[in-house]
Design a protein around this nucleic acid. Structure first.
Lengths: 236, 236
DNA sequence: GAGTGGTCTAGACCACAGA
DNA sequence: CTGTGGTCTAGACCACTCT
């Protein structure tokens, strides 16, 4: 028997997705059991199981052991938000990325910063400030503090060649991160470096990354509202 | 042989995750082959395969047929961004959600709106405008256009009881969506209804949802920058 | 050709839910 | 108790990569 071009478990997924998308199966409705789908498709249970398990992972169906599989209540469509290197992001748009380095220094940690990074107050901390440009236009002001324990060579990096994010991704494998995005007005310094008025609203992303046992970095990324937006797509 | 409390494929995943997190295996390094892991753990290939496949899905490793499995180059940590009902979101914080309805009407679609929703110009379109409050404080101004074909009963809904998002999630199962988030200043109307100054920066989310064959809805959600931020967590 | 991952099977035992 | 999903095995054939 020749293998189909599209795997059997994908066929099962497509079948169920279709019923849900077309509205034939509504939230809360039962999905055929693994045994039923085995018969219907003439395939083994492991294969059916894989299809259903993946649909559950995508949030399209809910499975309860002993009870059965049902169409998920709210079709929570979700997209993946990813920490990316801005250089890569700009390059993907076919544009030229460049960097203006404002500061790259070793400093003594303030109490607040020490707390954030899990250091002792007054301990050494790396501090960088730079502006990212896309085709020569400033799109991001990056103010970052780095834990020397997580990335000891941070300051040796030429940030015009390797962005701080990339250096950190390569030297301090991410294990955890948190972020928040808010709207704010730029500080005088930020406005000056970004070349915008102080009244222009900006997106600010606060990001804290953890690598293994260390908090690796705390950053504030400021984007002019008129030049940048976060966009994404959801797919069921 | 009694089943272990933690499944074998999870043990494989934990083993590999550990090596990566601890830095013993760096980006680009080869991960042991399925055959090697079978031997090491004394389990069957399908089980090893599931562990590795899930790690690949999480972006922690890259698998190439014929070549092997390697630690992924950039540990792209990503989190799921989900379309949620604001009522649910506020309730989850233990706060009280309420709604002020400003408008709920059938209108004729402008050319631009008809284009967005996939209608003919001048066709009927549902239009709602409302303010969402958390503990009595305005946190979101919602301006939404809905395709009558996707949710014919939209205007019959009491939006103080069932939010537009919830109604749509329930009656027009999401199949696709796109969004963008930007910083902006509120319009005069928005500032008035949100009770903020016109100079206060806001987050604006534009969202377009598709349900089956129809574009279901186009919405603009405006959040005062001082009262709201999008936040999230990434986990490897 | 040897080694890799992608898929699949036909069984199996188990934990759990619901009647 | 029956039916469900969760996990696992010991094989198998295939497509692919690399040497």
């Amino acid at each position: 028997m020749p293998r189909a071009a599209v795997p059997a478990y994908e066929q099962v997924k497509a079948f169920i997705r279709g019923r849900i998308a077309s509205g034939q199966w509504k939230p809360g409705d039962p999905v055929p059991s693994e045994a039923a789908l085995m018969q219907q498709f003439g395939i083994s249970r492991m294969t059916v199981n894989r299809g259903l398990r993946e649909l559950a992972g995508e949030g399209l169906v809910t499975r309860i052991q002993g009870s059965g599989t049902r169409v998920a209540q709210l079709h929570r469509i979700s997209s993946r938000l990813t920490i990316r290197d801005i250089h890569e992001e700009v390059a993907e748009r076919g544009h030229v990325h460049s960097t203006r380095v404002l500061l790259a220094a070793r400093e003594k940690a303030s109490a607040a910063m020490a707390q954030s990074l899990g250091l002792r107050t007054g301990g050494a901390v790396f501090h960088s400030r730079l502006v990212h440009l896309e085709n020569g236009v400033a799109i991001q002001y990056e103010d970052r503090y780095v834990n020397p324990a997580a990335a000891p060579d941070y300051l040796k990096t030429d940030f015009t060649q390797v962005s701080p994010t990339l250096h950190l991704l390569q030297h301090a494998p991410l294990t955890e991160a948190s972020y928040s995005i808010e709207a704010c007005l730029p500080t005088a310094e930020e406005a000056k470096e970004l070349g915008i008025r102080r009244t222009e609203p900006c997106l600010a992303m606060m990001r804290r990354t953890v690598s293994g046992a260390h908090v690796a970095s705390v950053a504030r990324l400021v984007y002019p509202g008129s030049r940048y937006s976060f966009a994404g797509q959801f797919q069921a």
